[in-house]
Simulated assay, not measured.
Amino acid sequence: MSAVQIAPLQASDLAELAAAIRTDAVYAHLGGKAPAMQRFASGLQRALAGPPEHRRTERWLNYLVRAADSGQVLGQLQATVHDGIAEVAFLFGADSWGRGHASHGLRWLQQEVVRSCGPVDFWATAVPANLRCQALLARAGYVAVAPADAPRLLSYDDGDLVFTHRPPAA
């Protein structure tokens, strides 16, 4: 794996991020097709604006991942911290799959969440067909749980698989 740079996602990163991840190959793993650019852009703009007024106790963390050598955008990392938990997500362009970038990014994201928000339990969801995501989560120490055993997850859609990871105590 080549070195990566991780920095807060900015609105000015939108076009580069779209070029890297807004593809049918990537979105097939999410259970659909790549969204139109306007829908993609508005979703990222909502994420960057932060939680709505009625959910101000949440923290929305959004990061951009670049290759350190070339500066090429590889993908994004996200965490929504609420109610003592962190829901994590990652989305990387197909060109960077299988190179360890998402695994490295997920480890970094977990450390960043603990550093900035304190200790939490980590949760993630995946569509059943996304075997790559499930394998990455398993390698990172996440275990599958029944959706009924999970707390209220903002990222959960009916039919999703649910995973949790409780980091060892320091």
Rank of each mutant, 00 (worst) to 15 (best):
T57F: 04
A138T: 03
C117G: 12
L30Q: 06
A126I: 00
F90C: 07
R56Q: 15
G71E: 12
P51N: 10
D121L: 05
D95A: 15
A129D: 11
D83A: 15
L161M: 15
P35V: 09
T164H: 13
V113R: 07
H29N: 10
V127K: 00
G43V: 01
L91F: 05
A36M: 12
G141R: 04
A67R: 14
L17E: 08
A140L: 13
G118A: 11
D160K: 00
L131K: 10
D157F: 00
A86G: 11
A7P: 02
P151F: 12
G50I: 05
P52I: 05
G100E: 07
R139Y: 05
A28P: 03
Q76A: 08
V145H: 02
T164C: 14
R99V: 03
G31N: 02
Q78V: 07
V162S: 00
E87R: 09
F122Q: 07
R46K: 10
Q5K: 13
V162Q: 00
Q10M: 12
T23S: 15
A124I: 00
A150Y: 05
G71T: 11
A68R: 14
P168I: 03
P167L: 11
P147S: 10
L9W: 06
A49Y: 08
E53W: 04
Q5S: 13
L61V: 05
L61I: 07
R132N: 03
A150W: 09
R132G: 02
D95L: 15
L131Y: 02
V73C: 13
D160L: 00
N130A: 01
R22N: 15
R132S: 02
F92S: 10
A28G: 05
H104Q: 15
F122L: 07
W60H: 15
H82F: 13
G105K: 09
P128V: 01
P35T: 12
E53P: 12
G31P: 02
L9D: 07
Q5N: 14
W123C: 06
A102Y: 04
H29P: 02
Y63Q: 08
A144V: 01
A170S: 13
V88L: 15
E58R: 09
R166K: 11
D157M: 01
D149R: 06
A170W: 04
A68Y: 08
L153Q: 04
R152W: 02
S12G: 13
I6S: 11
G84P: 13
A126N: 02
P147A: 10
E58W: 13
P51E: 08
S42T: 14
L131T: 10
Y63P: 09
A148N: 04
Q110N: 07
A126W: 00
Y27A: 02
